[in-house]
């Protein structure tokens, strides 16, 4: 590779400066700071980098929104396979019948209960224990994100109670414990960018005051 034309008068090369931009490392940092040639070269590479970001923004704008038809048609083509997880036996009235539900359907149930609480969204959830053996003790692990301003302990207690009810109603699992971890505190939709359409906001609370929202 012919690099002579990239060698600056000070003896250093633009290639070294390019690597310095990415890694912050260069053989002679003291020289770099004081050499006008190197500083000019660095400034030129930085201007290019800024222009590269502008090209990226322009290309992303040209690509359209993720809510446009092109993405919908890609998503329609995907036909995502379901992830059923483990098979959980259900008690059946007739000894000849085998009834099962999937671990995936229980995760979906847990998510829907958590998502239904105002300002709350479920993350990962896990069933610990041998769900394939009827009566085996199971611990449920759920991660949630809560919108800022919602009292967390109260939220976790409500969710724990509602999950216990839903799991008792829809499953035969022997639930030992429900562990809830708040992994994220989300900015309230009102404080996000002003362009956010109302449809993207969390379900409205009947009262603004967070202390009264759980009242019947």
């Amino acid at each position: 590779m012919n690099t002579t034309s990239d060698t600056l008068e000070c003896g250093h090369s633009l290639a070294e400066l390019s690597t310095y931009l990415d890694t912050g490392q260069i053989a002679d940092p003291v020289h770099l700071e004081t050499c006008p040639e190197c500083q000019a070269g660095l400034a030129s590479l930085r201007r290019l980098s800024v222009l590269g970001s502008e090209l990226l923004s322009s290309d992303v704008a040209d690509a359209g929104s993720g809510n446009d038809d092109w993405m919908q048609s890609i998503l329609d083509n995907l036909r995502l396979e379901l992830r059923p997880g483990r098979s959980i036996p259900l008690h059946s009235g007739n000894a000849q019948d085998n009834l099962w539900e999937t671990e995936g359907s229980i995760s979906a149930l847990i998510r829907s209960v958590a998502d239904a609480l105002p300002g709350t969204a479920a993350g990962k959830c896990r069933l610990h224990g041998d769900v394939t053996t009827p009566g085996a003790g199971i611990t449920v692990d759920v991660e949630i994100a809560v919108v800022y301003g919602h009292p967390m302990e109260e939220r976790a207690a409500t969710l724990r109670r509602e999950l216990a009810e839903a799991l008792a109603l829809h499953t035969e699992l022997a639930i030992d414990a429900i562990d809830i971890t708040v992994t994220d505190v989300l900015e309230s939709p009102a404080t996000t960018e002003p362009g956010t359409p109302p449809s993207l906001q969390t379900p409205p609370d009947p009262a603004d005051s967070p202390t009264t929202e759980e009242q019947p």
Partner: peptide, 13 residues
């Protein structure tokens, strides 16, 4: 409502 809520949550979740 839950669907729209997903637009607000972080990537990791």
């Amino acid at each position: 409502a839950a669907q729209h809520q997903l637009d607000l949550v972080p990537d990791a979740l």
